[in-house]
Every structure is written in structure tokens, then in C-alpha cells.
Amino acid sequence: MYALFKGEKQIGNPFPTEKEVWEAALSEGLVSDIPVADEEGGQVIPKGYHVAHVADV
């Protein structure tokens, strides 16, 4: 399971995939755009936000 974090605080419900986390955050207005890969293969995400693996509940 994956969840959205701002800093070290989890701010969203967990989802089975990272894609579902970003889609939920976008639809709830938590972020303004779903991240895309940049030219170097990394992620471009809103500052302070990240998706991390969380323990399955």
C-alpha cells in the first residue's frame, strides 16, 4: 500500500498503487498536478509532497 505524505505526515488514505494515490490527491485538490517523469528519469512532484510505502492494514 502507498500513501501521500507532506513532510513526514501522512495526509491521504492508503491505496494499492502510487498512481491511485496521486489520482486521489488530484481529485481531492491536495495537489495541482499528477507528477511526471522529467528528462533525467526522475520525478517532478509538488515541493514537500511524496508518496511512500505504508504497512498493509
Rank of each mutant, 00 (worst) to 15 (best):
M1K: 06
M1R: 03
M1Q: 09
M1H: 03
M1N: 03
M1D: 04
M1W: 02
M1C: 07
A3K: 01
L4Y: 06
L4N: 09
L4P: 08
L4W: 04
L4A: 13
F5V: 04
K6Y: 14
K6Q: 15
K6L: 13
G7L: 06
E8M: 12
E8V: 15
E8S: 15
E8C: 13
E8L: 13
Q10I: 09
Q10S: 15
I11R: 02
G12C: 06
G12S: 12
G12T: 07
G12N: 05
N13D: 15
N13G: 13
P14N: 15
F15I: 06
F15S: 03
P16E: 14
P16V: 07
P16K: 12
T17M: 04
T17Q: 04
T17E: 05
E18I: 08
K19W: 08
K19S: 08
E20S: 05
V21T: 13
W22R: 02
W22H: 04
W22G: 00
E23F: 08
E23G: 08
E23A: 14
E23N: 12
A24T: 01
A24V: 00
A24C: 04
A25K: 08
E28A: 15
E28R: 11
E28F: 02
G29D: 03
G29E: 01
L30S: 10
L30M: 15
V31W: 00
V31H: 00
V31A: 00
S32A: 14
D33V: 09
D33Q: 14
I34N: 02
I34F: 07
P35F: 00
P35H: 00
P35D: 00
V36S: 13
V36N: 09
A37I: 01
A37G: 04
A37K: 06
D38C: 09
G41N: 10
V44D: 11
V44E: 09
P46E: 06
P46D: 05
P46H: 04
K47L: 11
K47M: 09
G48R: 11
Y49F: 15
H50E: 03
H50T: 05
H50V: 01
V51K: 01
V51Q: 02
A52G: 15
H53P: 06
H53Y: 07
H53S: 12
V54S: 11
D56S: 13
D56N: 12
V57H: 08
V57R: 09
